[in-house]
Design a binder for these strands. Structure first.
Lengths: 336, 336
DNA sequence: GGTATAATAGAAATCGTATTCTGAGGGAGC
DNA sequence: GCTCCCTCAGAATACGATTTCTATTATACC
């Protein structure tokens, strides 16, 4: 019942162990009658091959590593990551891979967690999220030829395989939509100023203003940390201007919700007095009042492309465009 | 530079391969001088043992499996899971284990994903989340003696190892708080009726009603799926009663937020006309208007206990209490 | 001095599967 | 009738580490 090996199946079926292996691998070189005989025994005993032995022999673990470069505490509670993880798991499954998740907690990140996973051959390839723009370890991985894909942007652009949201395009889309619908004083509520995503979206925001011939006013741009208090004070700062903005493009849904909340507390009606657009199209958007208009960043697409690319790399295919972009899409609801 | 094995280290250090292995395992039976010599070579070449070979030989992968029994789509965007995953990863790391995450997506759950992970020996043990109360597969795992821990409750209670939130106590706490603060018509907004967590919290809710001498009214109990529409219609059902409830205990923060939104749309003020309490104390609570009062469930504790227990099982220690409970705590904000 | 006992390191077996190598048997072709 | 080729399955090896077994040397004790 437990602990079967091919050798035992072989004995019971009256064939050699090699034949059992061949049958299970679907080797066409094996006679139909033998195949039947082996499969019958396999079926009956519920034999399943040992993944550890397969890994050693084939030099493949069929395991992908997902390394999230953020403290567990900061990661906790962020709906973006559960979506990303869920989608990558689902995608990896399509190629018969499993997913090993790790976070670069400080203690071990010093010891190069990448190495721990890859050099030990524990995983076949890595997906890295939220790494910093210039990361020594990434160069290293790249030099050693390990298969890995970055989620997020990296420079120079063709140095490594990356999959990214179209952040510039997405912010352009949000801003453009607000301007088209008659808003004139559109503000930008960013995340921490150092993040690539904050800067990319700011760029899209500016581009849309310019395309509409609206002057860029640096006072309409503020930055906040990822917590409610910081978001509220940044929003207050925006609202205290005169004239106050009549629309806000926020870096993510959490910030957008915080902004709506602050605006309403200060007597502004959403969307009548001020329109708000978020990012991520998280489930949350449907739950708040008014329902939040948001830019959907297609996490499934992100996950699919990253997984596809990584599996390709592992199996020796050089991806044609090393940089893939997941499109964004405006989901109109009630807040704008 | 790449692809080293012990044999090569051995040759360079002028010792046998067995000695290299012994040095790396910290075997005290090896002479200090040899140790030095081997370690020097290892250090210099940056040798790291192959985890696949170790797995096969030692019959241990040092990998824990986390199986979440929910569709990827439903899981996506739920902040509870990113927190849980992050914490388990962190805990597993303390014991030198890695974490393999899987979801029981329908297609494969039929094919018994548990088996795919355990019978193939891909992981050393499993943590199962949100399994249903009576799960055939769990009995099976139990009978075959596989190491696994359930997050959530299971009956009979001493049949399998479980770690659970104190769901009964938590719901009691929420309901008791509402009754103490003068609410009389407290309703319960559950998740899917089949889930253990839905039923446990219902039990705590009833117990609190009874303790306060308030009659249990089945009309005040409704169930919803984990999406905004279902939550809204369940809430509407509650509000349409006469007299309508003056408080709602919701199964999680998302449902609570949906309930608040629906109530406000129908002209009820929160918390004046109706109080709302959620579960999970997700970051979200701070962002909504009014800020959501919620029961915090100590995810880190849950993760720590589950991991501890599972690693114990794997290493052959029978856990003394098979059922562990993580305490809950009421976080008062503005909604109740 | 001879035997018993450690201490230590090398040789060899092992984990379970995949694959190469080898050989047996059976047509096909001349 | 012989060779050649082809099909197919068993034997043997490899994957890279761990561990048992074995052999060597040194020490101790009588």
């Amino acid at each position: 019942m437990a602990d079967l090996k091919q050798a035992e199946i072989a004995k019971l079926a009256g064939v050699s162990q090699a034949t059992v292996s061949r049958v299970l691998k679907g080797d066409p070189q094996v006679n139909a009658e033998m195949r039947e005989r082996v499969l019958a025994v396999v079926q009956q005993l519920g034999y399943v091959p040992d993944a550890r032995a397969q890994s050693l022999r084939s030099q493949r673990t069929r395991l992908l590593g997902l390394v999230i470069h953020r403290d567990p505490d900061a990661l906790a509670g962020d709906p973006f990551f559960s979506a990303l993880i869920a989608m990558i798991v689902a995608q990896a499954g399509r190629y018969d891979y499993h997913l090993c998740v790790d976070t670069a907690r400080t203690a071990r990140s010093q010891r190069a967690i990448y190495e721990e996973l890859l050099r030990t051959r524990r995983v076949d390839g890595l997906i890295l999220v939220e790494s910093e723009t210039q990361d020594r370890r990434i160069e290293r991985l790249s030099n050693e030829g390990f298969p890995f894909v970055l989620i997020g942007r990296y420079e120079p652009e063709d140095a490594v395989c990356t999959v990214d949201n179209d952040n510039i395009g997405a912010a352009y889309m949000a801003t453009d939509y607000l301007l088209r619908t008659g808003r004139r004083r559109v503000a930008y509520l960013g995340g921490p100023a150092g993040l690539t995503v904050t800067r990319d979206r700011l760029q899209g925001y500016k581009a849309a203003l310019e395309a509409h011939g609206v002057g860029y006013d640096p006072h309409r741009v503020v930055f906040a940390d990822f917590n409610a208090r910081s978001a509220a004070s940044a929003t207050t700062e925006l609202l205290s201007q005169s004239p106050p903005p009549d629309a806000i493009v926020a870096l993510d849904d959490m910030l957008a919700i915080a902004a709506m909340r602050t605006a309403k507390q200060q007597g502004c009606r959403v969307p009548d007095d001020i329109a708000v657009v978020g990012f991520n199209d998280s489930p949350l958007c449907e739950y708040v009042e008014p329902r939040l208009t948001s830019i959907a960043v297609e996490i499934p697409t992100l996950a699919r492309k990253a997984t596809e690319m990584l599996v390709g790399l592992i199996e020796g295919r050089e991806p044609s465009p090393k940089r893939q972009i997941a499109p964004a899409r405006l989901v109109k609801r009630e807040s704008a």
